[in-house]
């Protein structure tokens, strides 16, 4: 599989056309071609979740998708979450709850939670814990994140976002 392919998608509201090898993952394309380095590649095998983004609203692992597959899609990365300097309620909740350690897994956790809570705003604590089980973190121990998600969930409902 060689040769280069043009891929056009919308990233954080902006239409982009990039040229990639067919074997380039969407995560690498976002990082290297779009220079959106908030999407992290922690394992490149779909386990750690650091590369989680929203593809047409669905939280997915960007390392498990080829960039060419995203042609025509709308993508949201962590860089697209805040509204200017106003943070998304979940971002604010992570700040308020000291739920960031080294911060490497944070963008993936955020995108997972935003995607899931948009789909299903009324998740209870057990469901949130199961959801959080999707992504690995070695610093926070998850509990501060879980508390932040609960607070962010309430703020999201109030916000209607």
């Amino acid at each position: 599989m060689t040769g280069m392919v043009d891929v056009t998608f919308e990233v954080n509201g902006e239409r982009r056309t990039i040229r990639v090898e067919p074997r380039t993952s969407l995560a690498d394309a976002l990082r290297d071609e779009c220079r959106l380095t908030g999407t992290h590649v922690g394992c490149d095998e779909g386990v750690c979740g650091a590369c989680t983004i929203l593809l047409d609203g669905a939280p997915i692992r960007a390392c498990l998708l080829f960039a060419v597959q995203a042609d025509g899609s709308a993508i949201c990365t962590v860089e697209g979450l805040s509204d200017g300097e106003t943070l998304h309620p979940l971002q604010q909740a992570l700040l308020d709850h000291n739920a960031v350690g080294c911060g490497y897994c944070t963008p993936g956790l955020l995108m997972l939670a935003v995607g899931a809570l948009t789909r299903e705003p009324d998740m209870d604590e057990a469901a949130l814990t199961r959801l959080l089980g999707a992504n690995l973190c070695r610093c926070t121990g998850y509990q501060t994140v879980l508390r932040a998600l609960k607070a962010g969930q309430i703020a999201m409902r109030a916000d209607g976002s």
Partner: peptide
């Protein structure tokens, strides 16, 4: 798996 896996 987990939600992102189930989405795809």
């Amino acid at each position: 798996g987990h939600l992102p896996i189930r989405m795809r």
